[in-house]
Design a protein around this nucleic acid. Structure first.
Lengths: 340, 340
DNA sequence: CTGAAAGCGCTTACAG
DNA sequence: CTGAAAGCGCTTACAG
């Protein structure tokens, strides 16, 4: 437990004032070359490291942002957080983690603690489901924030979301491209925002291609589970004119749908091509491996981090919805050995 | 952007010194009742909040710990982090997140930044695979740390790990309990520590019960994937005396094993009971839902957080391996409608 | 180009 | 029980 070396020590040994040491550390131009060299040498020799807490107190910023999530276990939390952390790290900004479990009282407590710690900004994130929310549980006077995978109804701040609409277009266009004509959409629960966006994209693309769009071909599941995918796909396949492709609103739904196809003795993708949404890790392990539309979670996190950092630098914020493009991951469930 | 209210303001308005305000805030006993009341009232009225950065500078602790992980995307990271966050939150300690991607240079940079920020302690965590590591990339003078889901070869600090051995015993005992006699163990790759621990637990339990333990019944996969589970289970089932139960080293392996059982026209659990390890979310969605040994990730995170907080309070640390008990999750793949 | 002084907002002995 | 003083380790005008 040796005494920590401080800026005073460096100054004394280098024979300069601590103001000068500070200037060297902060790379101010107004320091003479040989003085700078001497200070740098002393810093290296003593192994001096500036105390960020003292700096934060004086400089009035802490180079710290926080992620406030209501769902640290959400299936998408990891990749979102990693994106934020990457963006912050690149600017030597640290990230604090706070989990509210969706409890407003917990959120309030976290927010207070975070503000007490003088965080420079906040990312308010849902790891689980995109929905509008009524802003943070506490007003954040002068502290910028952004919504990630979530959006504020009327907050004057940006929301970063996946581009669900164009993601659905990607899937539809891919299925059309491999020659499918009766393309079903096994969509997620109707109450979700993403569900509506994707329906728009899907419908527009199918229409444009002059393909059929019967009511039976577009269904809404009541959950995102494989069980629902199985049930709905079974119903579709037992109809008079079964689809030759099924686009599912999630990889879980697609997993169930594939089981339904195989159970009826049909082949994938020979008889029915199947494509999911999300690109969770299970997709690649399906038999056959599942084609899917990948949610750009990591990129969304980076965008959110970048935007927040810019706002901290003084960039004005406004209410806007930023949609990050999804990416198609083509695997054997749409282009397989037994495929087209 | 109104001026923030400071302790000076409170003191002036309440007509006391700031030392007294500080004592009230820190709940020191040596403040008169009416003075305390007056100060408290003033604090509430002004909405005063103490600046944690200033406090940290003076008090020489920041009530902040950090999680340094090499794998923020690891499949177990979420639950581990959540446990740490829960433990920290309960004591009003914040947690900083740093991801090294397993790159020692990145780890060094993060560590330096974290130390500069005067974190009170660190949790060094792997989100992915348990293995020994050579301690943090930088010496942490006076800053306590613990290993979570990872262990230091000779570091004088605790490591928190799952109790793999007793987890395997749980599984074996369960299968014996439901009347199985030829129990196979489709274990993970031999190079993993967990694999050896589980083999010990499994072997001991089977021996104790006087059940057969032929070489063919114990196999090591070369990865944890469903594909390997499928291949190995198929080999086991085509042998002269196929098993009536398969204990798998991961849920992914078990998924593959179940596919192999079903593909051969056998029933689960009627002909072959299958149980996994981990309790990932996919387990419950299998058909039939997969029984498994749950890794106590959340609890491990809490234990790690609690131990670190104790060390920060001055509790001496030493090299020790703390094993947290796994839990059996019984589902239809061992006790099903077509079961025993 | 360099440094003396003030001060960020607290807490900690210490005196009374 | 209360407060004056010092100081945590920096940075920021400002003077020279």
């Amino acid at each position: 437990m040796s005494e920590r070396v401080t800026m005073r020590d460096v100054a004394a040994i280098a024979g300069v004032s601590s103001a000068t040491v500070s200037k060297v550390i902060n790379e101010r131009p107004d320091v003479g070359a040989e003085v700078r060299a001497r200070v740098l040498e002393t810093i290296a020799r003593l192994g001096y490291r500036p105390n960020a807490v003292a700096r934060g107190l004086r400089a009035r910023h802490t180079d710290t942002i926080a992620i406030l999530t209501d769902d640290l276990e959400g299936i998408f939390t990891n990749a979102l957080m990693r994106g934020v952390e990457d963006a912050a790290s690149a600017y030597d900004v640290s990230v604090l983690l706070a989990n509210s479990y969706g409890d407003p009282e917990k959120e309030r407590r976290h927010l207070r603690r975070l503000l007490d710690r003088q965080v420079d900004g906040l990312i308010i994130m849902s790891g689980n489901r995109v929905r509008p929310r009524s802003g943070p549980a506490l007003p954040l006077p002068g502290t910028p924030y952004v919504f990630l995978y979530e959006y504020g109804a009327a907050e004057p701040v940006p929301s970063i979301l996946p581009d669900d609409r164009s993601g659905a277009e990607l899937a539809a266009r891919h299925l059309i491209g491999i020659g499918r004509r009766r393309i079903a959409f096994l969509n997620g629960p109707a109450s979700w925002d993403a569900t509506r966006e994707r329906l728009d994209g899907f419908t527009a693309t199918i229409r444009e291609a002059g393909l059929p769009l019967e009511p039976g071909l577009v269904q809404h599941a009541s959950s995102w589970s494989p069980e629902d995918g199985f049930a709905l796909a079974t119903a579709m396949l037992t109809g008079p004119e079964p689809p030759d492709a099924i686009f599912c609103g999630s990889d879980d739904l697609a997993t169930g749908a594939m089981a339904a196809v195989l159970e009826r003795g049909l082949t994938i993708p020979g008889d029915v091509a199947v494509i999911g949404f999300d690109d969770r890790s299970l997709a690649v392990h399906q038999r056959p491996p599942l084609s899917t539309v990948a949610l750009p979670l990591h990129e969304m996190g980076k965008v959110a981090g970048g935007l927040l950092l810019a706002a901290i630098q003084g960039e004005p914020q406004r209410h806007e919805i930023i949609r990050v493009s999804c990416e198609l991951r083509i695997r054997a469930s749409t282009i397989g050995p037994d495929g087209a």
